[in-house]
Design a binder for these strands. Structure first.
Length: 131
RNA sequence: ACAGAGGGCUGGAUGGCCGCGCACUGGGGGCUUGCCCCCCACGCGAGGAAAGUCCGGACUCCAUGAAGCAACGGUGCCGGGUAACGCCCGGGCAGGGCGACCUGACGGAGAGCGCCACAGAAAACAGACCGCCCAGAUCAGGCAGGCUUAGGCUGGUUUGAAACUGGGUAAGGGUGAAACGGUGGAGUAAGAGCCCACCGCGUCGCUGGCAACAGGGACGGCACGGCAAGCCCCACCGGGAGCAAUGCCAAAUAGGACCCCCGCGCGGGCAGGUCGGGCAACCGAUACCGCCGCUAGGUACGCUUCAACCAAGAGGGGUCGGGUUGGCAGCUAGAGGCGUCUGGUAACAGGCGUCGCAGAUGAAUGGUCAUCCAUCCCUUCGGGGAGGACAAGAUCCGGCUUAUAGGCCCUCUGUGCAA
RNA sequence: GCGGGUAUGGUGAAAUGGUAUCAUAAGAGCCUUCCAAGCUUAAGGCGCGGGUUCGAUUCCCGCUACCCGCU
C-alpha cells in the first residue's frame, strides 16, 4: 500500500534502505561518484574507496567491476569474492557512518588466496581511517 | 589394427559448516491486525551455446479498417514440414573424394543497359593484322625455237623471289581468366560443318516422375562467350517501432511562457432593417437579407481511391524553459518438458499418461574443508604438487552463426592381417 | 537490454572492380651565419577470416575493435 510506505526524505545523505547479506548497499550512481571523490587506497587484489558521511547511520558498501576485469563470468566471480570478504570483515573493522566502494582488479581479485584478500581489505581500511 | 566419414549424448561428482535471491507450503513471534513485518524449516535457483543480435514469430504501442500503384528491402532448383522463416527433411542437378560421404545465393545473359584492365590480329552485329593459296605485273636463272657475222635481239615454257596489285580462305598465329563448337576422316589451289561418324549444342514430340529432372527418338547444321554477391527482368514475401515497448500509482515543478493553424461556416467592418436606452450626436443588442476579408481540415504514411469516425475544444502543432530517474503491473503455463503408442522414408503431426521447471533490477550461485574423476609436472615408484573448455539469465519462443578442454555411445568406409 | 554506425601511411581525409591519391608529421639532401619558411627526394597503408569474380579497399557472409542513440 503506497499510503503506508514512508518515502525517504530527498536528501542525498540519507542511506538508501536496500540491504543484502547484512550490509546496507549503495544503489545510486551519485553515491558511487561521491565515494570516488573521497579517499582511496589500492592493494594487490582490490581498490577501496571510503567516505565519511557525518551521520550515525550504518555503514554502506558498494561493489564495482569494470569491463577491464573480463567477461561477465569473471566480473560476477570477482564481485562475489569481494562481497564475501566485506561480509566477514566490515562489521568488525568498518566505521559507522562511512560509505565504502570495493573495486575489482584484473586477474588478482579472482585468483588471490581468500585469506590474503581479507588481509588486503583490513589493511586498506586501516589506512583509510588513519588518514 | 591403422586411417577416416556421419549422427547423438554429456559439459566434473558427493558430502559437512557459514552465507545469498525468489516463492509463500508449514511453524513461531511482533504490533499500528494488514491477506503487514521479523525469525526458522522445507522447496526452487544459469546455458548448450544463456553469447553475437543475423532471420522468423508471439506480445504492446504508433494508428479503427480495406484495396491498388510506386519506391525500398529481402528471398530464389523441386516437393514437403512449420505459427512463421533466409530454418529443417526428402529428392534433383553440378563439383570434390578410391570410398563412407562432403560442398553449393543452384531462377533469367534468347527484354534491355553496362563492364571485360594489361596482353593480343581480334574481347562480341563480327571483322581480317600476319600467314596460306591463285592470278597479274616486274626482276633473275634454266631449257627449246626463230633472227643474227661472233656479240646480241625476240618471244614460248618452267622455276624462284625481300617488296607490289587484285582475289580466295579462316586450318595455324608468342597472348589472355576467357578466342567464334571438339576429335577423326573425306575434300581442296589453299581451306572451311562445305560434307560424314561420334561427342557437345539447339528445336519439337514420346516415356517415367506431383515436380525439379532423367531416358530415348526425330530434325536442325553451329547459331547462342563471361559477369546478375553490376544495374536490371520474373515470381513470392514485408506498414513502422520495440519490454528502456506499454499501462498505472506516488513525488516534484511554474496545472509555465511565446508563436502558428482550424471546414458545414467563422470573424470583423460598412450601410440598411428591427429592438432597447438617450433631447440629440450616439451607444448597446440582434444576424433574416446585401457587400468585403480569411478558409476547404484531421485520423493517412510517397501517391491515388473508398467506408466509417472526429472536427471552436481541458483543441492541434512548433520553439524555449522547468521537474522526476522512485514503486507496481507487463513477468513467466509455453507453438512447454519427459515417457509411450499411431501415421509418415524423414522433418513432423496426432492420441494417451505424467511433471510443475529462475524471475533478479548497482542485478541472486560465494567462501572454506574432505574424498573421488579427467589432465599436466616432479619422482628415490612409496608418493608429492599444480589444477578444471567456452562461457552466465534480463519479455518469451523457433532457428542460424560464432566460441568450446575433454569424455561416452551408435552406424558406416578404405587398407592390412588372421580364421 | 534494444537499435544504429565506422574501420585506408604516425595523424586527418579521398576513391566507378584493374597494386591506392592528397594534406600534414617524421627521415635525408639543398638553401641560410643559425632557425623558420621554401625546394628536391626516398620510405611507410586498405581491421581479421572466408566466398563471388580472371582480378576485391570496393560486392556478399562471419568475426574483432571502437563510437552513437533510447529509460
Amino acid at each position: 500500500m503506497p499510503s503506508l510506505i514512508e518515502f525517504p526524505e530527498p536528501q542525498s545523505d540519507t542511506p538508501s534502505p536496500k540491504s543484502r547479506a547484512g550490509l546496507c548497499l549503495l544503489t545510486k550512481r551519485a553515491e558511487f561518484i561521491a565515494a570516488s571523490r573521497a579517499k582511496k587506497q589500492g592493494t594487490k587484489s582490490m581498490m577501496v574507496q571510503g567516505r565519511p558521511r557525518q551521520d550515525d547511520a550504518p555503514l554502506r558498501v558498494g561493489f564495482t567491476c569494470s569491463k577491464k576485469v573480463g567477461n561477465a563470468v569473471a566480473r560476477n566471480r570477482a564481485k562475489r569474492r569481494l562481497r564475501e570478504a566485506a561480509r566477514l570483515i566490515l562489521p568488525e573493522h568498518g566505521n559507522i557512518g562511512w560509505d565504502y566502494v570495493l573495486i575489482g582488479r584484473n586477474d588478482h581479485t579472482a585468483a588471490r588466496d581468500f585469506e590474503d584478500l581479507q588481509r588486503d581489505l583490513i589493511y586498506a581500511l586501516r589506512k583509510l581511517h588513519s588518514h
